[in-house]
Amino acid sequence: MARERFIIGISGASGAIYGVRMLEAARRLGLETHLVMTRSAKVTLAHETTLKVRDVEALADVVHAIDNIGACISSGSFRTRGMVVAPCSIRSLSEIAYGATSNLLTRSADVVLKERRRLVLMVRETPLHLGHLRSMVQATEAGAIIMPPVPAHYTKPATVDDIVNHSVGRALDLFGLDTGDLVRWGEPGRGDA
């Protein structure tokens, strides 16, 4: 039986580690991952982590070039569970929201929407002006889920990794996927039950 396919986009917003951690989690879940990174994402990765682009690409089953508009993930006939953009820049959000796609990341997200599959955008920007908010509304009306990676303080995170892992776990929840290590409110043994 073929593994379920999952698209992971990494844009140039701050928080490249969210995309990296998403790839790691998807691998543990046995998903076939299709990665597409913007050029800005590669620059951000170098500024924010010690990872090389090749290290991140090695976590994916299939890596697609940002300009390869003919890639399989640009077609609705290529079945996937959906797509997450982690992190999602305002530029990528805006292209997705209004269907004015200029690269494979935003084209793939547009395809996921038109096929009525799940699209989660981990938007990373603050503060937000009215144009950003309108783009979020437009993307939501088109079927996307806007999920900024906001830390849950009830988990009592001790490290940045704790914060990142929780946000990634919550995003995967939106696809019905559970890594098994997400701290959840109200569960026994968590000090809050």
Rank of each mutant, 00 (worst) to 15 (best):
P188T: 05
A171K: 06
R190F: 06
S108Q: 01
H34A: 03
L35H: 05
S135H: 12
A158Q: 15
L29E: 01
A13P: 03
M147R: 00
T179L: 09
I69P: 00
V62R: 11
Y98W: 12
E32C: 08
E32M: 08
G176W: 06
I7S: 08
D61Q: 08
T44A: 15
K156P: 00
S108V: 04
M147L: 15
G12C: 13
L113F: 05
M1H: 12
S11W: 05
D55Y: 07
D173T: 12
F6G: 09
N165W: 02
I90G: 02
L51I: 03
L45Q: 12
L105V: 12
V36Y: 06
M83H: 09
T126N: 01
A26D: 04
D181W: 11
A25D: 12
V111K: 06
H47Y: 15
V36D: 04
G131H: 05
A16T: 14
V20M: 11
C88V: 07
G9M: 07
N68E: 11
L182Q: 03
L45K: 12
E57A: 11
G131N: 08
T106C: 02
E57G: 06
T179I: 14
A46T: 14
G82N: 10
A158S: 14
G180L: 12
V123N: 05
S89Q: 10
R27D: 13
R27G: 13
T140W: 01
T106Y: 02
L51M: 14
T101R: 00
L113M: 06
R170V: 11
L133A: 04
N165K: 10
S74H: 04
A86F: 06
G15F: 09
A16H: 09
D161F: 05
A26Y: 04
I10A: 07
